[in-house]
């Protein structure tokens, strides 16, 4: 499945992600990491801690609807893999981000912006294994 190269939308969307990361640090002093947000909701540490994460998640949920209202088109979500692979991938993502203490947003954006050696090492590691996995899935196994 080919997708169109969309540099402007990518830059704009990336800038929004960056802006959200900066604003969360400015207001609450927190890392904008999707993994941390979810873990704090699943295993709440305190009522206040739980509530801001829920507010953030509800705001995220509004994103696609606001996008649709403004642009007039639904967000494009194309899934090029089967459901068993979605389940396998989901479980591995969940296990990996828990042991790895973060994902693309927490390590890849916020951590690298802080020049954290842990985040730089984590990001290089997952970018490499993602690329290897895609190569194996597409060109070796042919899934």
């Amino acid at each position: 499945m080919t997708t169109e190269f969309t540099p402007y939308a990518a830059l704009l969307g990336g800038a929004f992600i960056g802006l959200a990361s900066v604003l969360l640090m400015l207001t609450l002093g927190r890392i904008m990491g999707a993994t941390g947000i979810v873990e704090g909701i699943l295993f709440p540490k305190s009522k206040d801690d739980f509530l801001w994460r829920i507010a953030l998640l509800l705001g995220m949920f509004m994103g696609p609807f606001v996008y649709q209202a403004v642009s007039g088109a639904a967000p494009v979500i194309q899934i090029p893999v089967t459901r068993p692979l979605l389940i396998l991938g989901g479980i591995l993502v969940g296990i990996g981000v828990t042991f790895g203490s973060g994902c693309t947003s927490g390590h890849g954006v916020c951590g690298i912006a802080r020049l954290s050696p842990r985040s730089i090492a984590a990001t290089l590691t997952f970018m490499a294994t993602t690329a290897i996995t895609v190569y194996v899935m597409r060109h070796v196994i042919g899934a």
Binding site: I79, G89, R118, A128, T129, I132, T133
Partner: peptide, 19 residues
Amino acid sequence: LLGGAAVFGVGWGIAGFCP
């Protein structure tokens, strides 16, 4: 950290979604 990140990458490559 590194093992977790490696496993996350495999999952991301299989499903195409990150959290």
